[in-house]
Amino acid sequence: MYEEAPSRSVPGAVVWRARGPGGPVLPDGCMDLLWIEGRLLVAGPDTGPHPAGEVPGRSFAGLRLAPGTAPALLGVPARALRDRRVELADLWPGPEVRRLTGRTARYADPCAGLEALARTRLDAAGPPDPLPTEVTARLRAGQPVAAIAAALGIGERRLHRRSLDAFGYGPRTLGRVLRLQRALALTRRGLAQAEVAYAAGYADQAHLAREVRALAGTTLGAWAAAQAPSGAPADPGPAGANSETWQPSGSRTTA
């Protein structure tokens, strides 16, 4: 079982809950603050698929933070957490983490505890850096990296360095990850693969297939079949994915 909803107190974030082992975790450009059976963890930005059950547990709650927002909360550059799942105690002083763990445990809904923790940290960090939001929006719009750097008034090398700290990887990789997520969303809507390739901004269907294999470790057809309810046809229909199946679209699933 997996469910999610927009956060009511952390802009751009999503709260989610899950039970069971779930499915593989695919890159989405986000980072997650996690509560797993009394433990606080962080899931860093992914560059490829992560297997189900990478962090043991039966019950999970998470706050999925929009691309580029987690470093201000954590006080750690995203590049240091790329493709990692770490205990919060490995990043912050032990006494502080024990205090925050106890505070989160007092919430009937651990997602509310995660939101309170994140809101407090983000407020203390001061005004957010506008660059990650701008870069993400321009990449989602399909703008090339050179054009984004020019629009921001910085060189491509500087944009790359700042992206490493904000997102965990350079803007070209983030663009590929965001495009993958567009392709998966279009597939859930029932579009044929040729239509998905065109609408998501790939050169052609072969380009789509290569990118899905590189970033998701599977084919789009196999991924779509895994989303279908038990007994349903393998091709994705307009109804979308099974609400009882965790959606493997980033660190939102387990850890």
Rank of each mutant, 00 (worst) to 15 (best):
Gly53Phe: 10
Gly38Arg: 07
Ala105Glu: 12
Ala61Val: 00
Gly113Thr: 06
Ser59Val: 15
Pro71Ser: 09
Leu74Tyr: 13
Gly75Lys: 10
Cys111Arg: 15
Leu131Met: 15
Pro49Asn: 06
Gly22Met: 12
Pro24Ala: 15
Phe60His: 13
Thr69Asp: 08
Ala66Tyr: 03
Glu115Gln: 12
Ala105Lys: 04
Pro127Gln: 05
Arg138His: 13
Ala18Asp: 02
Leu26Tyr: 11
Pro21Trp: 07
Ala72Leu: 12
Pro77Ile: 07
Ala105Pro: 04
Val10Arg: 03
Ala124Glu: 05
Asp90Arg: 14
Pro95Thr: 01
Ala124Gly: 01
Asp83Lys: 10
Gly126Met: 04
Asp123Ala: 10
Glu87Asp: 15
Arg82Cys: 10
Arg119Ala: 15
Arg99Cys: 00
Arg121Met: 01
Asp32Phe: 03
Leu88Val: 07
Arg103Cys: 00
Asp123Thr: 11
Gly113Met: 06
Asp83Asn: 12
Arg99Val: 11
Leu114Val: 09
Pro93Trp: 05
Thr133Leu: 10
Ala108His: 03
Arg64Glu: 04
Ala66Asp: 00
Val25Gly: 14
Pro11Lys: 04
Leu91Cys: 12
Arg98Gln: 12
Ala118Leu: 09
Arg82Tyr: 02
Ala43Leu: 12
Glu87Arg: 13
Gly44Arg: 04
Ala43Tyr: 07
Asp123Glu: 13
Pro132Ser: 07
Asp90Ile: 00
Gly20His: 10
Arg84His: 08
Trp35Leu: 03
Glu115Pro: 11
Ala105Asp: 10
Val10Phe: 07
Asp123Ser: 09
Leu73Tyr: 10
Cys30Tyr: 04
Ala52His: 08
Arg121Asp: 02
Arg119Trp: 01
Ala78Lys: 11
Leu91Thr: 08
Ala70Pro: 03
Ala70His: 07
Pro27Gln: 10
Gly57Leu: 07
Pro130Phe: 05
Pro93His: 01
Ser59Leu: 13
Asp109Phe: 04
Val10His: 06
Gly53Leu: 10
Gly23Gln: 13
Asp90Pro: 00
Val76Lys: 12
Phe60Arg: 13
Thr101Asn: 01
Ala118Gly: 00
Arg121Phe: 00
Glu115Cys: 09
Ala43Cys: 07
Arg99Ala: 15
Ala125Met: 00
Thr101Met: 04
Arg84Gln: 14
Asp32Leu: 12
Arg138Met: 14
Arg58Trp: 11
Asp46Val: 02
Arg138Ala: 15
Thr104Trp: 01
Gly48Met: 05
Trp92Ile: 05
Thr101Lys: 01
Leu100Val: 07
Pro128Ala: 02
Glu37Leu: 06
Glu96Ala: 14
Gly22Ala: 15
Tyr107Trp: 11
Pro45Lys: 04
Pro56Ser: 05
Ala80Asp: 15
Thr104Arg: 02
Leu88Arg: 08
Phe60Asn: 03
Arg85Thr: 11
Thr101Asp: 08
Val76Leu: 13
Ala43Ser: 14
Arg121Lys: 00
Arg98Pro: 00
Glu96Pro: 00
Pro130Ser: 06
Ala66Leu: 02
Leu117Lys: 03
Gly12Asp: 02
Arg106Cys: 08
Pro49Met: 01
Asp32Glu: 15
Gly62Thr: 03
Ala137His: 06
Thr47Ile: 09
Gly62Asp: 04
Gly113Ala: 02
Thr120Asp: 06
Ala112Gln: 14
Pro21Lys: 11
Gly68Trp: 05
Arg99Tyr: 01
Glu96Cys: 01
Trp35Asp: 14
Ala43Asp: 11
Thr136Asp: 06
Arg17Lys: 12
